[in-house]
Nucleic acid binder design. Sequence first.
DNA 1: GTAAATCTTGACGCAACGTCAATGTCAAGA
DNA 2: TCTTGACATTGACGTTGCGTCAAGATTTAC
Lengths: 253, 253
Amino acid sequence: MERSIQQVARLAGTTSRTLRHYDDIGLLPPSRIGHNGYRYYNEAALIRLQRVLLLRELGLGLPQIHQVIEAEADEAAALGTHLALLRAEQDRLARRIAAVQHTIDSLKGRGTLMAKNMFDGFDHTVHRDEVEQRWGKEAYARSDAWWRGLGKDGQEDWKLRLKELGNDWIAAARDAGITPDSPQAQDLARRHVQWLTGIPGTPAADPGGDTKGYVLGLAEMYVADERFAANYGGIEGATFVRDALAIYSKTMP
Amino acid sequence: MERSIQQVARLAGTTSRTLRHYDDIGLLPPSRIGHNGYRYYNEAALIRLQRVLLLRELGLGLPQIHQVIEAEADEAAALGTHLALLRAEQDRLARRIAAVQHTIDSLKGRGTLMAKNMFDGFDHTVHRDEVEQRWGKEAYARSDAWWRGLGKDGQEDWKLRLKELGNDWIAAARDAGITPDSPQAQDLARRHVQWLTGIPGTPAADPGGDTKGYVLGLAEMYVADERFAANYGGIEGATFVRDALAIYSKTMP
DNA sequence: GTAAATCTTGACGCAACGTCAATGTCAAGA
DNA sequence: TCTTGACATTGACGTTGCGTCAAGATTTAC
């Protein structure tokens, strides 16, 4: 049985234009061409079309489909390669979704999305200007001096640990049922301070030092410096952390 | 401070061609054009560029970005719309991944890809009697239908149990020493599947069911659906789970 | 002073068709 | 038989977001 281009298109759920395109690029020539130039397709052509459409559904490009269909072999390998691409694409998508969600959250909570993502990856001088303008010169100078004092390895290490704690903080801050003075937040604050006091060379680790004041100052800095705020889900998160730490510090000796 | 087009490109992690393109379409004109025709960008232009790149990162098209940036209003609404699109796209991707994965399995297990399966969903009148031979798409549709069939309470219950398992998963995923194919992760995968098969009414619990395919499909869904991903410490965690389950499924009958 | 880097505009290329445009062909009803 | 309307043809431009020459002007570096 032979079918016209339009019949085939309807049957396969595509368009005649697509079929003509597939003919043009040699991917799916019609089984017969009438004296009038009309394209006619038989069963074999239909089956081939099915395979094309299936592979296309799976996301392969037409040249790749052509290759796979011609060299009947190794369909699994081709699909395996493609699978990896799909996974990567999905990861990118997921990240984008998270970013969009976060941006929306920030917009709703803050009205402006200046702070967090915008200057990320930008050059440090621009970053500094922004911070100074928003939070004052000394705040920046203080945090920057301390930060540079850590050295490269120290900075990496710090960021890593911070990220771990940060995840818990973020989860807590996002939960509308958890307030800075809630048991959950206070427990986090306790763990946070415990971690701080474990870092040698800090006032917090110094038995005679002003741990309390240091903790408060640090918390303030979290809010002031975006590099830290970034680890707490932006300004709102850092604010939550600061508040929780401030409350916790009152229970400290 | 004024920067040349190349400096701006490097600073923002894009190319000069892109900047010229943005100028061409009126999205981002340079702040000044020298007598020689050179483009120069000031801080304001940089900020605008940041917004453009951010929105682009989030997946919006240039015309839409233009619109959003010009009409400063209602960024959240625009992003909300976009978020829905992203989610739909993600669903499609997840389905495709499941389908590709299943196709690969079929190829490995049964040799050649049978035409009958391929025609499925095509012309039902031709292959009506072979419609039972379903593949990938169905698995996802089934699990999705099952999920919706659980109802609100059932879903909550499920999520609760999931959270318990999730804690172990998160701990494993965070440990840099544990990979998806490590014994620890594989043991978790075993427990996970064991738990799955204990739930009545699921394909996994059905002795004749395609447990393997179901597990894989479900794992994909974990990554695709943030309702689940949230229980595994975000995308990375869910990805870890998926990989571990995928590896484990190979050892299944 | 010269070479290397960087700038300009202009134009083609990419993927996979959509969408006219201008024209030819086929089946069916008055 | 004539007309009408559905369907066919090739050809060419439009779409998205730039990449990639090309050819020439200009700036920067040594």
